[in-house]
Design a protein around this nucleic acid. Structure first.
Length: 262
DNA sequence: ATGCCGCACAACGTGCGA
């Protein structure tokens, strides 16, 4: 079973690119971030025509997340718990029973706040959002399920995860507090898929549209997949579909995926 | 030091992203 995550930077602008990738990669489950669409305007039929069940949690103009699954959803949770006043659509979770086995997986699709500029309320929001995510993760880990947390974490975990780490020293993505919160989350018991398989440099998931970042391979690794112990037991391999960044009308992020034995 | 580029919007400039 292949499970993928991709920040598509707008479903309206990206629909053809996303459909092309789905046909090529054929993930069983796909987590999409930054759909930038309300639920009513999400082009669900285009995905249903490819055999996907579709669940969205959108808002007007910004943010928004979606889950696609070839197997039906048993349960869907929208919004990250812990703050009833939070209006931003950044989390959707689904439980999916696999048609060909007795197994089920819980998949959390997240678009973690950017947090810039540091020192302001946006950075505070980022850190509090990460605290809420940690609390939710603890609850799910206690259930000992095959559980995955995938998405755009907006965190550069380590210097090796940026071409030019010095350029990010004043950025919310690379602050000690952001990095520590990501480490704390992972250390609750998750395996981070990509770093479980390589310690190599120049492994990136995002290249800015500006200043020829893609041509210079000036990238950062901010899209991550965390696997619960029960999901880790099923882990086969993972990858980053870097070539998609070179397509016409690309997102600034590329898909990241795992294969599980299920 | 700034902007570069791209997306969305009752939009033709502005806010936001990373």
């Amino acid at each position: 079973m292949k499970i993928a995550t991709w920040n598509i930077n707008g479903v309206k602008a990206r629909i053809d690119t996303v459909l092309d990738w789905l046909k090529e990669a054929s993930p069983d489950i796909a987590c999409l971030q930054e759909i930038k669409s309300v639920d009513e305007n999400f082009p669900r039929e285009a995905f249903e025509d490819l055999g996907y069940n579709v669940e969205t949690h959108g808002q007007k103009g910004f943010n928004g997340v979606a889950l696609l699954s070839k197997s039906p959803f048993d349960e869907v949770i929208r919004r990250l718990p812990g703050d009833d006043g939070d209006e931003q659509a950044r989390y959707i979770e689904g439980v999916i029973s696999l048609q060909d086995s007795a197994r089920s997986v819980r998949v959390g699709c997240l678009y973690l706040p950017n947090g810039n500029p540091i020192g302001g309320e946006k950075f505070t929001y980022k850190l509090s959002w990460m605290e809420r995510l940690q609390k939710l993760a603890l609850e799910h880990l206690a259930a000992e399920e095959a559980f995955l947390l995938l998405g755009d974490y907006n965190v550069i975990p380590d210097p090796i995860d940026a071409k030019n780490p010095d350029n990010w020293k004043d950025d919310a993505l690379f602050q000690p507090e952001s990095r520590q919160a990501f480490r704390e989350l992972a250390n609750l018991g998750f395996t981070e898929a990509v770093r479980a398989t390589t310690d190599g440099a120049e492994v990136y998931t995002f290249w800015d549209y500006q200043a020829g970042a893609w041509q210079k391979n000036n990238g950062i690794r901010i899209d991550h997949i965390l696997l619960s112990p029960q999901a880790t037991d099923l882990f086969k391999d993972c990858g980053i579909d870097k070539h998609v960044r070179g397509w016409e009308k690309p997102s600034d992020h590329v898909p990241v995926w795992v294969n599980l034995a299920a």
